[in-house]
Structures are given as structure tokens and as C-alpha cells.
Design a protein around this nucleic acid. Structure first.
Lengths: 243, 243
DNA sequence: GAGTGGTCTAGACCACTAG
DNA sequence: TAGTGGTCTAGACCACTCG
């Protein structure tokens, strides 16, 4: 086991170590169940202090890749599920646009906020918001109808760029750092209109999702109501239990 | 702002501080947007070292209650959503039994694992597993039908205790420490049989959830297939974006 | 009893933000 | 320029697990 640390790199040492440990786990150099060797040895071997090594290890414990047991050691978690999907339901929706699936912007206009939207975004009723309606397709078939509201002051949404880049990336490059989101996932039967938009029969099962996303100051930056064809979409994600 | 730290307590100092900070945020002594004061001052005032204070603050940053900005300071997040629901979809299902909702055990028996169950639990096909089928009701109305499989060697499931305590607590007290879970949430229309069990009409929208839960060694300890009346149930949770 | 991780200390230098 | 958090060091003692 060898690690290459560059003290002149702007990347923190603990982060360099964490990345290389993760890579080693990923491609099997560190197999599930393997003990990592104690922290003192590791730190002397690497020429790092113990707290720095601990910080690297801790970050992988937080990711669910390692487990520490006092009196035993640190071992690679013996899981069938290698790579936790993290925030797949969020990333999938916000970031995946422009990859496999295609997204068509149906509406992109500024409107006054209704009561529900205003409440969700913490704005006054009637305040200007951007209404964004998108149809997402894979393999030429509609999968989801995404309706989003954003405070108009937040950023400008160019339709062409939106279809190529995705909402999430545009927000990020506009300096909005997403911090948390609250989601509600439910189901219902499709109305006639919804069925037509998604190429389904009336009464077909739909998966619904509502989300409010917040930036790191706690400001609501996005509120969305999404519906998905249940026959072609499911939310798949991994939970980590915090001890 | 005053904090009471007990050095004779077995509770770590950083944890005592984190708890008291969280309480102060919770009941408003630290209002959203408030700066926390710099770490050096805090540590000298509290008679702690800076790393210890940092560890306390970091744990609240991880929970999404605080934000740190270099050159600025640490402030309370200005969020409408105070208490993240954490793993509500998991806890809700595993732990809520015995609280508001009532749970009725329909089946609790040992059966040989089918191919799908064996694959999910990482067992040989035909290995003994516990099949648990429960009907969950609130206000006297059925809400969900929960079907779970557990390795038979894991623990004994007394039906009466199960209805009173909940599966999660029983696993925990049997020494199983949950570590992660993989979930898939989807939707479909109810079959005639499912509709009858949940007091719905055929074709009603159902929310479906499949979960495999793992302990801290990566062993699969539970596989479940749940269906919910969409008209009375939705998954609600909070996501934190890891920077 | 030997070895492990868990906690804690008292410093240090740096990068970033603001006025 | 002053103040903040970000990183890092080199020690220390303790609690736990195991043979």
C-alpha cells in the first residue's frame, strides 16, 4: 500500500489521502473486510500527524466506506452496494439534464407568485418569480413533467442553455450554493391532461415529487412540482444511518 | 451566552458543547443569521482547546444547523426548516410502530428464500428466512402493507413484542446496528387483491418502496417490499448537500 | 496486557473576506 | 490591514476489545 502525497499541492493533505484511500477501495486494492492498519503506523509511514490521518479516515467513515471499532481497527465496509448514490434523487433531477435524457423547455417566463409558491419560497404573494416548465424524455419517450419556480432576482435562465446545461449547473455557476432540500414523494392517478402530456392513459399511476431547495444562507432558491411516469421512473437512493 | 461543561462526565466535551449549541438554536437563543463568535475566543472563554470547539461546531455544520465562511465567521443557518427529518422514511417505517399508528402482524414464519430474496440478502437460494407481513393502520384505516424478509439466524421475532415495539427497536436490542439502506420508491396501480387489503378500489394509486438494509459489517439484515395507500401516505424528507 | 480508536491540548501557519 | 476559518503538528491520556 503506497500513497503519494504532494505537500505543495493546494489540495489538503487529508483530502489527498482520503481520495487515494477511496480509489484503493474502489478498484479493490483494499478489499471489503480488510483492516486498514492502525492510525499511528499510518501517520508515521506517511509522514503525517495522527489527526490529519484521522481526518482523512473520518471522511470515508462519513461516506460509509469504512467502519471504525475501538480496540479492533478500521476496516473496509463489506457491502454489496459499492457506491452510495448520494443525493441521486436531487442530482438526477437537477443535473442529469443534458446527459442521456433530453429536456425540452415548455415554458420559461416571469409571473407573479401565487399563494403556495410565495409561501414555499418565502416571498410576498405576487412577487416576481420565474416559472419553468420542462418535459424530460429518454429514448424519445416522455418520462417526467417538471414545473419549477425560482425567485426572479436569483438568476437569468436562458432557454437554450437550460436545455443543454441543466438547472442545477446554471444555478451553481450563478453563485448559488445549494445546501439542503426538502422533498415529498407521493403518488396519484393521472388526470386526462397529464396523461396526454406523458403519453399515458388516464388513471395511470404517477409518481409525484415536491421539493423546496435552500442555499447556504437558508434562503429558498427553488420550489418544484414534478410528476413522473411510474412505469418508467423510480427514486433510488442510499441512506446512511448516523450513529 | 453561557455553557455548562462537565469534565467529569463521560459525555465528550465537544458533544456537550454541540448539544447546548443545538438547544440554543432550537429555542431561539441563537437566532438564524447570528454570528457565533470566533473559535479562538470561544475556546478561551470555555476553557477548551480550539480543535475541541471546532469539533463541536463541525458536527452542527454537518447537521445543517450552522454555516462557516472563511473570513466571515460561523452563523446560524437562516432556514425555514428547523429540524431536518433525517432518515424519516426509514425511521418512520421501522420505528414508528407502536406510536400513533398501530401495526398488526399478519404473517410471521420461517420460509425458504426465493431467488429474489436470496439475492437481496446475499444468501443461498432456499436458505431459511423469516417472512414478516404486517398491516399498518392509523385512525383505524389501513395505510400500508409491509412485507419483510430477515435472515433466520439474525434474531427471534416474537409477534406480540413486534406489534408493541417495532422491528427496528427489536433489531437494535438484538445487537444489530443498522448502517445503511438502499431504497427504491415507485408507484403503480393497485391489483384487486391489494386494493381489498388496503380498503381501496382496484386501480387506485399505490406508493411502493423496496429496501435492503445493511449493518455496519455490510451484511444485509433486512429486505422489504412495502406498499402504501397514496391517498394517505407520502415520503417526506430532508436532504443535505455535501460540499 | 497489548493494541486499538476516542478524546483533548497548545501551539503554528495559511487563505480568504472584509472595511 | 485585521480578523476569520482551514489546515497541520506532536504530543498526551483514556476506554474499549481481544487474546
Amino acid at each position: 500500500m503506497h500513497f503519494a502525497l504532494d505537500r505543495n499541492s493546494p489540495v489538503p493533505l487529508y483530502y489527498q489521502l482520503a481520495q487515494q484511500l477511496e480509489a484503493a477501495i474502489e478498484h479493490g486494492a483494499l478489499a471489503p473486510g480488510n483492516l486498514l492498519g492502525n492510525e499511528i503506523d499510518l501517520s508515521t509511514r506517511l509522514g503525517l500527524s495522527r489527526p490529519t490521518v484521522r481526518q482523512a479516515i473520518q471522511s470515508l467513515v462519513d461516506k460509509g466506506l469504512l467502519v471504525r471499532r475501538r480496540g479492533v481497527g478500521t476496516q473496509v465496509v463489506h457491502s454489496q452496494v459499492k457506491r452510495p448514490l448520494e443525493l441521486s434523487s436531487l442530482y438526477d433531477d437537477l443535473e442529469a439534464a443534458g446527459q442521456g435524457p433530453t429536456t425540452q423547455v415548455v415554458r420559461n417566463e416571469t409571473v407573479p407568485a401565487g399563494a403556495d409558491v410565495a409561501a414555499a419560497l418565502g416571498l410576498a404573494e405576487g412577487a416576481e418569480v420565474i416559472l419553468l416548465e420542462r418535459l424530460r424524455c429518454t429514448h424519445g419517450q416522455p418520462v417526467a413533467l417538471l414545473c419549477n419556480y425560482l425567485p426572479a432576482a436569483l438568476l437569468e435562465l436562458d432557454t437554450a442553455r437550460l436545455e443543454a446545461t441543466g438547472l442545477y449547473r446554471m444555478m451553481r455557476s450563478a453563485g448559488v450554493t445549494l445546501h439542503s432540500a426538502r422533498q415529498t414523494i407521493g403518488a396519484r392517478c393521472a388526470t386526462a391532461e397529464e396523461a396526454a402530456q406523458l403519453d399515458q392513459k388516464e388513471g395511470a399511476a404517477l409518481l409525484t415529487m415536491q421539493r423546496t431547495a435552500y442555499d447556504d444562507t437558508g434562503r429558498a432558491v427553488e420550489y418544484g412540482t414534478h410528476i413522473y411516469r411510474a412505469s418508467r421512473y423510480a427514486f433510488d437512493f442510499q441512506l446512511l444511518v448516523r450513529s
